[in-house]
Nucleic acid binder design. Structure first.
Length: 318
DNA sequence: CGGATTTGACCAGCGC
DNA sequence: GCGCTGGTCAAATCCG
């Protein structure tokens, strides 16, 4: 991930794009519009300097307040996400240990139990592994090797079947399956020789930009980057809270959220768990970004912000 | 040169 | 029993 492409998450959502007139002077500089452009607009209507200053201050306060609220909302969202994730991990730990052992005889178990420990990070109902699989298989076969599934959105042009989750994988096979024209790649965890975890990665049949990664088994070693980075402060420390979210939407525009710039006085910050591997963070961040894009409220707010911004910029040119 | 990836061959489960 | 299919193996190839 390229830090240089990150933007302030305080999106400056201008929910009311019609207010461009008064917003423009305030936001122009913040959005990188050269200073010298401002006077041509600012003094167009020739209001008194006092009035104008007051209006600007008022507007600034309003925008700041909006930013603050949005930041709080995001924080709450992240906390909720964390809580759910921790619960999921607990459940997986409790149930997984018993189920893992014993050689998983292929085909009897693999496809039937994808659902029980599903990690559907997209927040979307696409988490359901194909329903026909479930209906075919008897219920008693559901419990076998621990499996989970993750969905990762990639750029449209990206044809690789690489899901970065922080672990080290060795590809040992690739196959084109019947129900999906895109090939399925098979990976084994290569970080520890004895690690039994396998991973299958295949593009979603519905959305070719989405990679479906199916994990089987449990790692019998600590997270590689967890070891490497434990106690260190390199990179971003956001724990499992995504302080930055990178979203490659439709392969063209990168919409990036950077929560690291949220208010330092934020109480939630101190309670956040620390130090998770950057790769894992990125993985989680991608999941969150994916979720956000599917949230109509978020997209509506984003659209409003963008249109507001465009109107502002148009206005500054006049 | 060693490790990772590719890819065709092979194996085993399942349905008919 | 046979064919189809998913999963794995291993030789060949690639790459740093």
């Amino acid at each position: 991930m390229d830090n240089s492409s990150w933007v302030d998450t305080s999106l400056d959502l201008n929910i009311n794009p019609l207010r461009v007139k008064s917003d423009a002077p305030v936001d122009a500089e913040r959005f990188g519009v050269p200073r010298q452009m401002k006077p041509t607009f600012m003094f167009q209507t020739k209001p008194s300097a006092k009035e104008e200053t007051g209006a600007i201050e008022e507007e600034l306060n309003r925008v700041s307040e909006e930013n603050r609220k949005l930041t709080e909302m995001l924080t709450v969202m992240c906390e909720n996400y964390n809580a759910l994730r921790n619960q999921l991990m607990d459940c997986m730990c409790k149930h997984g240990e018993k189920e893992l052992h014993g050689p998983s005889k292929k085909r009897k178990s693999a496809s039937s139990n994808n659902n029980d420990n599903n990690i559907a990070m997209n927040g979307n109902s696409e988490s359901s592994s194909t329903d026909e699989e479930l209906s075919k298989k008897p219920r008693e076969e559901v419990i076998k090797a621990k499996t989970s599934r993750a969905y990762v959105r990639t750029e449209a042009g990206d044809k690789s079947l690489i899901v970065k989750d922080g672990y080290q994988w060795r590809k040992y096979g690739q196959k084109v399956t019947r129900d999906n024209p895109s090939p399925r790649a098979y990976f084994k965890c290569s970080f520890a020789p004895s690690c039994p975890v396998k991973k299958k990665v295949q593009r979603s049949i519905d959305d070719q930009t989405v990679l479906v990664a199916t994990y089987e088994g449990e790692h019998n070693h600590p997270h590689p980057s967890m070891e490497a980075t434990s106690g260190s402060s390199h990179g971003l420390t956001l724990g499992s809270v995504p302080c930055s979210a990178s979203l490659a939407s439709s392969g063209k525009t990168n919409i990036t959220l950077d929560l690291t710039k949220s208010k330092s006085s934020n109480d939630a910050k101190s309670s956040k768990p620390k130090t998770e591997a950057p790769e894992v963070r990125q993985f989680l961040v991608e999941q969150m970004a994916s979720s956000l894009t599917k949230d109509p409220n978020f997209t509506a707010a984003l659209a409003a912000a963008i249109s507001g911004r465009m109107l502002q910029q148009n206005h500054t040119k006049w």
